[in-house]
């Protein structure tokens, strides 16, 4: 492992093309902070909706989300332009959080366009807020560079995997909603926020379709990652924590799809699996912090 890690330890001084860090590199951060402010409305909406729905928030949450995404997009685009390379922007952990949040929100919009329900926002908005918030306070200028980052494979890897993450997360949120709705229907009590959730079968469809859509992205994303790793670290890359967790996640993902397709698992069993897949995904994500292969930052 050390050998491989050594291979990717990156130059600790900035790449000539990046230095010196100019003032306009702070602009993406400003836009991101504006986006965070708009996403805070979503966070408020999510908390209010669960306890006591607020008409005013329901009215403004969607426009706020849209504006937030515009600023968010500007932030991402500008950051890509100032560093001069798209991929490079994406690999800093903090910036990737920002990108992940954006992809998740885009996925949410897709669901909204089809089903006209804000309900998944209960999970999506807080997560998007947290990710962008963390990204906006913890972001430093990129201090790394390596040949690795320049390859198109890495870019494909990140974009695909993130879409897969977004799908998995939405599906996870949908299965929680499904459980809540199922429970209230079983208990013959339909009050409060639950009475405003979409119908059980609609929630189920949202979860399943997200899963279906996300799977190819996840699969190809992992393949793209493997290609890069194989090329740079040889066959031993497999033993890295992050990669093992990713494979585990992928396996659970596949089981999830299979049980659904084969025996129509939904409700409680499906929710357990989705939770498991989600935890695997989060661990794979968190493994960034201790993975050798994935650690691009060397300070």
């Amino acid at each position: 492992m050390d050998m491989e890690a050594g291979a990717i330890i990156v130059a600790s001084r900035p790449h000539p093309r990046l230095a010196p860090i100019s003032a306009d590199q702070s602009m993406p951060l400003v836009w991101l902070k504006v986006a965070v402010a708009f996403y805070a409305v979503g966070l408020l909406w999510a908390t209010a909706t669960v306890s006591r729905p607020c008409n005013f928030l329901s009215k403004i949450v969607f426009p706020a989300l849209g504006l937030g995404m515009v600023f968010h997009f500007v932030s991402l685009a500008e950051s890509a332009m100032t560093t001069g390379h798209l991929t490079l922007t994406l690999v800093s952990i903090h910036e990737s959080e920002s990108l992940l949040a954006f992809v998740i929100l885009a996925f949410f919009l897709l669901v909204y366009a089809k089903y006209k329900t804000l309900s998944p926002g209960i999970f999506v908005f807080p997560l998007a807020f947290l990710l962008t918030f963390a990204s906006s306070i913890g972001q430093g200028p990129p201090l790394f560079d390596s040949k690795l980052m320049r390859s198109g494979w890495i870019f494909a890897h990140i974009a695909l995997i993130f879409t897969g993450y977004a799908a998995l997360f939405l599906s996870f949120g949908a299965s929680i909603l499904y459980l809540l709705q199922e429970r209230s229907l079983k208990a013959h009590r339909l009050a409060g926020y639950l009475s405003r959730l979409p119908a059980l079968e609609v929630i189920d469809e949202i979860g399943y379709k997200s899963l279906l859509l996300g799977f190819p992205f996840m699969t190809f994303g992992l393949i793209a990652g493997s290609v890069v790793a194989q090329e740079h670290f040889g066959p031993m890359y497999f033993l890295d924590a992050k990669i093992l967790l990713s494979l585990l996640m992928w396996a659970v993902y596949m089981v999830l799809l299979y049980t659904r397709w084969n025996s129509g698992w939904r409700g409680r069993k499906a929710a357990y699996l989705a939770t498991f897949a989600f935890i695997a995904a989060v661990s794979a994500w968190a493994a960034n912090y201790f993975s050798g292969v994935h650690r691009f930052v060397a300070q």
Partner: peptide, 9 residues
């Protein structure tokens, strides 16, 4: 109402 809550349409 309940049927709609379960099946949507």
């Amino acid at each position: 109402d309940l049927a709609k809550k379960i099946f949507g349409s």
